[in-house]
């Protein structure tokens, strides 16, 4: 809430000056974001279902054992670490441990995220070198839509972190940046959970 309207609230004590009429309240924003993630979760669930029903249709092309490698996939799970660093960032925000720690943790998270993206690009390129292109079979099509959809989400998450770091620098921690940071955290943890699912259902199940 901006200072101006807060002073107005002091000028009109007890009157109905509902702050949420110009901007949605924090509660609405965060709840709305949860609902959005629910919708996004449905989207991922459907992609998993598509993968489950088409995953066996290799159409004479390579199968999971031919194209998946456990080590890089496990390496990518280092994205999980970024959930930890984001957690520290959130705590830094909550307990007001200074902007340096917050920005530092966001930067670490960003680097881990970028590292994840780089590794994944490397994997995709490696798969394509072996001829495992999405056009080969339904299995590969389903793989190349499920995992890159997550990839796309992480990329947007990285863009969001950069935007957040700039905005924190510009206006510090205020109501708007705090709720945005909160939502970004939710989003980032959500992507981690999706990755755990991908790692278990796609890579582990495909290889073991």
């Amino acid at each position: 809430m901006s200072a101006g309207s807060a002073s107005e609230r002091r000028r009109h004590p007890g009157l109905n000056l509902h702050e949420s009429d110009a901007h949605p309240s924090d509660g609405e924003v965060v709840f709305g974001f949860w609902v959005f993630m629910m919708s996004d979760a449905v989207l991922f669930a459907l992609l998993f279902a598509v993968y489950a029903s088409l995953g066996a249709n290799t159409a004479g092309g390579p199968g999971p054992r031919d194209v998946f490698e456990l080590d890089p996939a496990a390496m990518e799970t280092l994205l999980l670490l970024s959930s930890f660093t984001f957690g520290i960032a959130s705590l830094a925000m909550k307990y007001r441990r200074g902007m340096a720690l917050l920005q530092g943790m966001l930067a670490t998270t960003l680097l881990l995220g970028l590292g994840f993206l780089g590794l994944e690009v490397h994997d995709f390129v490696g798969m394509e070198d072996t001829g495992a292109l999405p056009q080969v079979s339904a299995f590969l099509s389903a793989f190349y839509v499920l995992v890159p959809t997550h990839f796309l989400h992480v990329s947007l998450g990285c863009v969001w972190i950069v935007v957040m770091m700039v905005q924190l620098r510009m206006s510090g921690l205020d109501r708007i940046t705090r709720t945005r940071l909160l939502r970004l955290g939710l989003f980032w943890h959500f992507l981690d959970i999706v990755w755990v699912m991908i790692f278990s259902f796609v890579f582990l199940r495909g290889l073991l």
Partner: peptide, 18 residues
């Protein structure tokens, strides 16, 4: 759209699509 634009095989008759 991916089937149509990039030649993937989700709902095609061949290539394991369904």
């Amino acid at each position: 759209a991916l089937d149509r634009y990039l030649g993937m095989h989700f709902f095609t008759s061949g290539g394991g699509g369904n």
